[in-house]
Amino acid sequence: MSELKLYEVFIRAKSGLNHRHVGSLHASDAEMALLNARDVYTRRKEGVSIWVVEADKITASNPKQEHEWFDPAEDKVYRHPTFYPLDKEVENM
């Protein structure tokens, strides 16, 4: 028998925070993945909510294209408030 499907696990540590990737595990279906994720990743109340996603359903950007993809954001300084000098009188804006 081949190994069970791979699921990626995301946990919300407490309400108000984002779910965050914590690792992965194998399970036969999503329900089992959730149960295993609870036992493996939240034994000390590390979470109040769990997402599991079949690993091969995730589409990821290519690290080889990191520069092409993300560098264009670097030279757009005018997207940041500090680009706009203010007169002293109104500098708390």
């Binding site: 190994e3 690792g23 992965s24 194998h26 034994r43």
Partner: peptide, 26 residues
Amino acid sequence: LAKVQDEAGHGLYIYSATETLGVSRD
């Protein structure tokens, strides 16, 4: 029991990290 269960968890965290290198759990 809790301690031994933790060790199982440690094994699983590291297996899962090892699998990201392209080796299967099997």
